[in-house]
């Protein structure tokens, strides 16, 4: 029996590879200098969903993301790997959202999509590392949750058994669908793009994305509805703007500081034999080692 799975994915700046030009002189972030990528643990989530699809014919996997128009890139990236379709939540009213306002927006969109069996997302996004959105979406939908998922061990008759990571070990838990899962980075890595799917979906766009190629090949693309990425605003998902974006965020950023380390008086030496030996003798003499 096929299942309906929604994968939550986020396009994030690649904070793991921050170069020297990532910070402006005034201490603000130079976003243009950071490449935008598919949040790594959301790729683990996608793989988990695709494996369920492999084992359960008739299953559909939809990608849901929130962000500016260019966030459709993660939906296409998902399609190249086996997702069936995607939804982009985009609206100025969503901007400045903390995790609570983000989960409100995602939950309203999920309700609008409806009929789901599983909502699967990465444990956390690398630009915030909070791990809050998954459980908050679950709470807003009134669903149970399994966080830190590593692998689905069985899925039948509306019951799912998964292995999850816990502090210092693992746990095997069983739950009844529908459920929210968040997937840990220790889960299976995502399969690569499939060349046929890249060909099939490369012109998939949302309505506010401009794609010159799409106009050029308008004739050939006619009637291919699967190339339409659904795009929703706050109004489209019947959202309450007060609960979205900055106004729906209970947390406020009071202060942002650039890091200035308290510089110590340090002694710089070379890697020469004499320098290293003198350092060892000094550390032994002051009983730091030995």
């Amino acid at each position: 029996m096929g299942l309906k799975i929604i994968v939550l994915a986020k396009q994030v700046p690649d904070t793991r590879n921050v170069g020297k030009d990532a910070m402006n002189a005034d201490g603000t972030i130079n976003r243009a200098a950071l490449p935008a990528i598919f949040n790594p643990e959301d790729l683990n989530a996608l793989e988990l969903a695709l494996r369920i699809k492999d084992n359960n014919p008739g299953t559909t996997v939809s990608i849901l993301t929130m962000g500016p128009a260019r966030a459709s890139e993660v939906i296409r990236e998902g399609m190249y790997r086996g997702a069936d379709n995607g939804y982009l939540l985009t609206d100025r009213a969503f901007a400045g959202a903390d995790t609570l306002a983000t989960s409100y927006a995602l939950a309203t969109a999920i309700k609008k999509i409806g009929g789901y069996d599983l909502i699967i997302g990465g444990r956390q996004a690398i630009d915030g590392d909070t791990a809050q959105v998954g459980p908050q979406v679950a709470e807003k939908l009134g669903l149970g949750q399994i966080t830190y998922t590593e692998e689905v061990l069985s899925l039948e008759n509306g019951k799912i058994t998964v292995r999850r990571h816990i502090d210092g070990g693992i746990e095997v838990v069983e739950g009844t669908l529908p459920l929210v899962l968040t997937v840990n980075g220790s889960a299976a890595p995502c399969r690569p793009r499939n060349a046929k799917l890249v060909q099939k979906f490369k012109y998939a766009t949302s309505k506010s994305e401009e794609n010159p190629a799409k106009e050029k090949y308008a004739e050939q693309l006619k009637g291919k509805d699967y190339l339409e990425i659904t795009e929703w605003s706050v109004a489209d998902v019947d959202g309450d703007t007060k609960q979205c974006g900055l106004s729906g965020s209970p947390t406020k950023v009071k202060k942002i500081e650039n890091i200035i380390f308290q510089a110590k008086e340090s002694k710089t030496i070379t890697g020469s034999d004499a320098d290293v030996e003198n350092l060892i003798i000094e550390l032994l003499n002051n009983h730091t080692i030995g």
Partner: peptide, 16 residues
């Protein structure tokens, strides 16, 4: 620390 550790943020919840 926030944003890949390039900044330190102070967060407050004034109303909630």
């Amino acid at each position: 620390p926030a944003f890949g550790g390039n900044i330190v943020a102070t967060i407050v919840n004034p109303e909630h």
